[in-house]
Design a protein around this nucleic acid. Sequence first.
DNA 1: GGCTCGCGGTACGTTCCCGTACAAAAGTAA
DNA 2: TTACTTTTGTACGGGAACGTACCGCGAGCC
Lengths: 235, 235
Amino acid sequence: MNRTSAVSKNRLLAALSRADLALLQPHLERVPLKVRQVLEAPNKPIKHSYFIESGLASIVAGNSHRRLEVGLIGREGMTGLAVVMGNDRSPNENFIQVAGEGTRIAVDRLRGAMQKSRSLEGAFLNFAHSFMNQTSSTALSNGTATIEERLARWLLMAHDRLDGDEVPLTHEFLSLMLGVRRAGVTVALHFLERKAVIRLSRGRIVVMDRDGLRTSANGTYHAPEVEKRVTRQRR
Amino acid sequence: MNRTSAVSKNRLLAALSRADLALLQPHLERVPLKVRQVLEAPNKPIKHSYFIESGLASIVAGNSHRRLEVGLIGREGMTGLAVVMGNDRSPNENFIQVAGEGTRIAVDRLRGAMQKSRSLEGAFLNFAHSFMNQTSSTALSNGTATIEERLARWLLMAHDRLDGDEVPLTHEFLSLMLGVRRAGVTVALHFLERKAVIRLSRGRIVVMDRDGLRTSANGTYHAPEVEKRVTRQRR
DNA sequence: GGCTCGCGGTACGTTCCCGTACAAAAGTAA
DNA sequence: TTACTTTTGTACGGGAACGTACCGCGAGCC
């Protein structure tokens, strides 16, 4: 199989050494990712880890009354972090928010591969750490930012992970993600539109000006960390 | 060395197998933990991981304008999770909030021990995962709860990790942790005092009624997960 | 080609929390 | 005791977001 076609659009897989990839390859299964598809149910054993190639998954925490998104995963990473960290489940729900496709691996296969290769395990843990940082950052902005700032941050994160400039989501959906009123989202989006950083149409937000969005995010957005981990590869 | 006295008051250490503990033991150094002592500075290489035996450390995220606590670590765990996950630094600050003592280990020794024992690594990763869940939960309550609810949650978490019922902190300090006004904390604490779930005195909050606090937390507090991870010990 | 239903725009009064400010305790040092 | 510092109690006007509600519009369905 030729090298170019073998490289996944998933950045985590694409960055693996050939040997590590070979450990996973036989167990990877290509799957479509449909909107609202549940990848992990809260407190239920996780069956597969997903490597997203296009689309977006949302990690949502919640206690029936309260619910909101604590993290976003796209082609830069993988789902099933609980498994990477030696557990079999997570209290949070994980579902597809923007349709796409990717590959998945059964969790026992994943565990096996990680046991066999420290560098593979290291790569996954490294992503788990950056996801943890994303969650901290979410906690920070939830605690201190306005809806408009939080929306700008969210749009930037989504834009980072999608092809093109369209974010195909309704205000209602965004309000669930941010844990605020739908009407609040509508108003805040209009502010952003008046600043010409986005354009709105039904069920769709188009990012027009990333820098403007960054300004609107007012310090709550941080570019996805450029891998600065201690290299552990020593093979 | 006799078994009773060898068992650390740190729960993570106490739960390790004898073999795993033996890997760490030679490198552990007993240290006092002083208020405001910085265990990890943001984006600087971490030098030691700390196993707290008494006292409380706070993990704070922030961009100079904004700052608030995203997690709390006491005797149930360890600091330096970035290292556990293969990195050498974290964007968050980590400092002592309530004085106490504990042991620490230099990070390269820690890495060495984790390389040698999968079960040791597994134990630490398991804690990292539960800390991650704590952070999600913080993100959730920051986004959806009132000050009074967040305070109740915070007090319960602190109470879980401290000896006795006293939380020796000023309103000012709590306001920094929650990212709200100091005056807001004062008012909210009075509400809780009027409900007789706490008692206030200068620089000190005494927990009187845990169940009442739980009610006041209104669903934002979850008892620290009772270790339900897949057993990985296969030593 | 009319209808239905989901989505988006807008409004009203209310609640929570903010920024700021100042003075009354409660400790601490002299 | 006195003087000083830190912490706490309380107030005020203002702004952000809330719950709720109602209506127009667009897109897909029959």
